[in-house]
Amino acid sequence: MVGVKDVARHAGVSVGTVSNVLNGRESVAPEFVERVQKAVAELGFVRDDVARTLRAGTSNVIGLIVSEAHNPFFIEVARGAEAEAVETGGIVLLGNSHGDAAREDRYLEAFYRQRARGVVVHMMDPEALSRPTGQLLHRRGMPIVTMDVSLGQQTFSSISVDNRAGAGLAASHLMEQGRRRLLFAGGPMALEALQQRLAGIQDCLHGGAVLEVFETFDTSIEDGIAAAQDVLRRRGGADAVDAVIAGNDLVAIGILNVLVSAGVAVPEEVAVVGYDDIDLARTAVVPVTTVRQPAGVMGAMAVRLLENERLTAAPPEHVLLDPELVVRRSTVRVR
């Protein structure tokens, strides 16, 4: 097997120079970098990351655990995290928990066994990191950054968008459009983010406005289809709604598709608002008004928080970003 010493001998440089090149240090002269890279290619050298990890104590892996990898929002989170990780020589490995507590624990354990630099987590269960596995990793010094879960704002660094304010923007916009019978369609309501969004809507009700809640099982288009059936059932009755605020854009798109197919005029009869601002919201059959969360920025900042904690032993830091309302045709009547 070709080793570092072989590469150094072939390139005519020291072992230290080879190590510096392989680790991406900028202090090496371009001439030596070229010679080392040429030697690596000619000899077919493959770096032994296992041995390097054992020596260093950590690998270049950053774990990212999400609750719903099917959601385009988390694809953008992963892109942002990956872009930031690359800047420090890291790689991002994704784990999809499907909101299952046992899977979350298995991923946490797996990333710990890989001696990951740290883990960024978005979990359906707000108590996930309070369980033994999460607490064990924390005691052993692995940095953990949470997304959309405050966990009392004590143990772990966190990054979130102000969900209460974001939903308030959506509700205030609908109030300005004269909507008074609102439905919030989202779930599961055990999620802290959705609890905050519901509270934000309630904060902004006035002028005799009424709010109903349809709790969805998950956050998919299929859940939006189920919510839309509830909207259709209410149609023409005393409990009919004239606006729906969805828990996310996928649910909003499911609602929109069913309403349009059933001949319901959107937004003339029923306005629809989503949350996240994924690309599908912009390109839907009726472009969806939504609350934008900067997914890529969240992913990048989460990795930045993690690296800061790892390198400086800084105390937990909590970042709260501002949401933005993006108004499209699903709420504004075309005159």
Rank of each mutant, 00 (worst) to 15 (best):
H173I: 10
S59A: 08
I91F: 01
F73L: 09
S172E: 15
V149M: 11
T146C: 13
M124V: 09
I144Q: 03
V119S: 03
S130I: 00
A116E: 11
M124K: 14
V120S: 05
T133L: 06
N60F: 13
V161N: 09
S157E: 12
K38C: 06
V40R: 08
E34H: 09
V149Q: 14
V40K: 07
A69D: 05
V121C: 03
S130C: 01
V66M: 11
S59H: 10
T88V: 15
R131T: 05
N71A: 09
A41C: 07
A170C: 01
S97M: 06
G57S: 10
I62T: 03
V77D: 05
R47D: 01
L136F: 08
E127P: 04
T58Q: 14
M124R: 15
H98A: 13
G57A: 10
R52T: 10
V92H: 01
R79N: 15
D100V: 15
Q153N: 15
T155M: 12
A81V: 05
K38F: 05
Q135D: 00
G63N: 05
D148E: 15
Q153T: 13
V36L: 05
V50R: 03
L108H: 04
G44A: 13
L94M: 11
G152V: 09
R131V: 01
S150P: 02
A102W: 08
L151R: 11
T133F: 06
R103I: 10
D49N: 13
V66C: 12
R103Y: 01
G95E: 13
A116R: 00
L93H: 03
R79Y: 14
V145C: 04
A78K: 00
Y112C: 00
N60Q: 14
F45G: 02
L108C: 00
S158Q: 14
G80L: 08
S130T: 11
A170I: 03
E34D: 14
A78N: 01
R164I: 14
V61N: 14
A167E: 12
S172G: 14
G44F: 12
V119P: 06
P72D: 08
I65T: 11
T58F: 04
S59G: 07
A171K: 04
R164T: 13
S97L: 09
Y107T: 10
E68M: 09
G166W: 03
A102H: 14
G44Q: 12
G57P: 09
V121E: 06
L54N: 02
D162C: 08
V121K: 00
A56I: 04
E76F: 00
G63R: 00
M142F: 02
V40F: 04
A110Y: 09
N163P: 02
T155H: 07
N96H: 07
G63I: 01
T133P: 02
R139V: 08
D125V: 05
L54D: 05
E87A: 15
